[in-house]
């Protein structure tokens, strides 16, 4: 990876839930074609910060975000930015697989249909196939595209959700503990997939598993009590952490 262009830049981001100061002064750069992992103990704010990147926190009434998050030079919290458009560009995969109660095809076609990305049925078919292929699910579901998405296994459902997210052709893909509800085999498949996805997107993944962070990411950010403690190359974070708190966490002494 030599082409390290910055996709998103967060500067002095603060998040408040009511009176609770959940994120304190976080600066992070999200690089293109890179998997960035957010690690840290539960309640450290890593998921909260992830949800700032596509303004999903807007749907929570008591949540306030300060500071700026730039995407290609534009502050995504600028009043001129439509959060709905932003979320099409910054896709999201959730902790628990949440396929819609629709067919596999309709699940993937949902985003393209809403955003009017295709002009004909044939084009839509093509987008659906391409997305399912990229999510490594095509071979398993190509004969039952019109079966309900909720009938798939947990791992397949999560890959369906990934296919659904990449069907809108996002630039950044946010993943909030995408493997925590999956068994080890499905986890391995999704991790392999994440590595593939890196060639096309900037991927940000929140994970509880440090092994997973070490396996899939190139950059790692360690959060603790709402602070960004350390951010750097994954290898460096795991072998020579600069901050004692990082070292305690990755060696299992806190968290």
């Amino acid at each position: 990876m030599t082409t390290e262009t910055t996709k998103m830049t967060a500067r002095s981001v603060q998040v408040f839930y009511g009176d609770n100061h959940a994120i304190k002064d976080v600066d992070v750069d999200i690089l293109d074609n890179t998997v960035t992992a957010f690690i840290g103990p539960s309640g450290c704010g890593k998921s909260t910060f992830l949800r700032c990147l596509n303004r999903m926190n807007d749907t929570i009434d008591i949540c306030r975000v300060q500071g700026e998050i730039l995407m290609q030079g534009e502050n995504i919290y600028d009043p001129r930015v439509d959060p709905v458009q932003l979320r099409a560009k910054v896709g999201m995969v959730f902790q628990k697989p949440n396929p819609f109660p629709k067919s596999i095809y309709d699940n993937v076609a949902y985003g393209p249909k809403i955003h009017g990305l295709t002009r004909s049925k044939a084009e839509l078919d093509e987008v659906v196939e391409k997305s399912l292929r990229r999510a490594a699910l095509w071979a398993e579901v190509k004969d039952r595209l019109h079966a309900p998405g909720t009938g798939l296994s947990g791992g397949q459902q999560q890959r369906l959700c990934i296919a659904r997210a990449i069907a809108t052709n996002p630039e950044v893909l946010l993943m909030d503990e995408p493997c925590s509800a999956l068994d080890p085999i499905a986890t391995a498949q999704v991790e392999e997939l994440i590595d593939e996805l890196r060639t096309q997107f900037a991927v940000v993944i929140v994970t509880h598993s440090m092994q997973q962070a070490a396996r899939v990411s190139q950059r790692t950010a360690f959060f603790h009590l709402g602070n960004l403690v350390e951010y750097g190359e994954t290898g460096q974070i795991f072998t020579t952490p600069r901050d004692p708190r990082t070292e305690s966490y990755i060696t299992g002494r806190i968290g």
């Binding site: 749907t59 999201m92 396929p99």
Partner: peptide, 26 residues
């Protein structure tokens, strides 16, 4: 489930699209 709403909103659907296409069918 709220997760269905989140899924739809996370794909860039508006609130009313989410209600019409995900919440009401469910």
């Amino acid at each position: 489930p709220q997760s269905l709403r989140d899924g739809s909103l996370g794909l860039g659907a508006t609130k009313s699209e989410t209600i019409r296409q995900v919440v009401l069918p469910a």
